[in-house]
Design a protein around this nucleic acid. Structure first.
Lengths: 196, 196
DNA sequence: GGACGATGTCTCCTATACGATACACTATCT
DNA sequence: AGATAGTGTATCGTATAGGAGACATCGTCC
């Protein structure tokens, strides 16, 4: 029998397959997984192998992530972060951080507005993590260095990169700069932060 | 033996485990998966069951997604979208869309700047997709309706929600509005768009 | 009504994921 | 050196994932 964690992937797979008008055998042929196996997976009679689920989601044109994401109904519908009510987190860095996310269950990315005082910079070690990151410059001039390469971001410019690459940045304008930062997977700034 | 699709999850798992200073047995106890199983998975000797990988990634504090994402080294280091060089996609909607992402392999979210002319709106059916979505109002006034609930976004306000919920929005200001939209998983606007 | 083709389900059998435990190796003690 | 505790690896038994094919049901055509 199948454990609690995985409950409902079967149901979801069946929905998607039906939605696309595919029969068990049709899907089976496409993806090289037997129809009986798919059937058992859909009924939650077995817990598929990683290889098998990947074949299936590929065949259905989805990702495993979205399959797992929507298993439980969200408790929060939407997280509304009003500009005037947003709290500002101020860690040691002297950089103002306003989180735009953090209110939904099982988020897959984080967003924050960063206020960077004149001359401030982030050193190389900090905020080094997995996944990807998008930085959009809203105000001021910020110089990014990623793996040796430098980029100067002015108002409206953005930079998208894999964030496990060594990266750091600096406010090179003569005034405060503001960045919008998106991280995936989400990081949890300020809260329960005990860096190993 | 293990198939091509899944190659390297093992390596990645081992890296993460070591990075956290955990031994096979330590991790094993935490997550109720035998150490020998973890070992074989790390060596790509077996293809783990969905339940098993989920236990492991949970124990390592990651998501399955990020495990699968970063399997291959990225070809692009960073995607720099300069404001003045950004192309504007104009679909039927009359809404200007400037993509900030789309340059990296295996992205997990999409970001775009939307320019919404006065009075323009998005109807309910459109942009209905899986995952989650963040909207940040940069300029103007936009009214969002999500599952019946309405939110008025002014400059600086943001809204974060599960995007499979029915949602639509409308520019209710007396001028053009601008939104920054983040979607996860990524959607591919404008390109190869043939809605089933 | 019977033949045919489609669907999903069930029943085996085999391949394999996983657990228990033994083994090899290294480091740090006494 | 020997003992002990830690590491990762190898072996083997069992539970189970997955494949081949039979079976039941429903529709359509003749």
């Amino acid at each position: 029998m199948v454990e609690q964690l995985v409950i409902n992937v079967g149901k979801k797979i069946r929905e998607l397959r039906r939605q696309q008008g595919l029969s068990l055998r049709q899907l089976s042929e496409q993806i090289e997984v037997s129809s009986s196996a798919i059937h058992k997976i859909e009924q939650n009679l077995i817990s598929p192998t990683l290889g098998t689920v990947l074949k299936i989601v590929k065949g259905l044109g989805t990702t495993l992530q979205s399959l797992l994401d929507e298993q439980s109904e969200p408790k929060e519908v939407a997280y509304f972060a009003e500009a005037k009510r947003r709290s500002t987190i101020v860690p040691d860095l002297k950089i103002g951080i306003q989180l735009l996310t953090g209110g939904l269950p099982e988020e897959t990315f984080s967003a924050a507005l960063l206020s960077i005082p004149r001359g401030a910079k982030i050193k190389e070690r900090e905020f080094h993590h997995h996944g990807e990151e998008l930085q959009l410059c809203i105000k001021g001039k910020v110089k990014f260095t990623i793996k040796g390469e430098t980029y100067l971001l002015k108002r409206g410019d953005s930079l998208h990169f894999k964030s496990y690459l060594r990266h750091f940045w600096e406010n090179v304008g003569n005034a405060e700069a503001r960045l919008l930062m998106i991280c995936s997977p989400p990081i949890h700034l300020g809260r329960e932060s005990n860096e190993g």
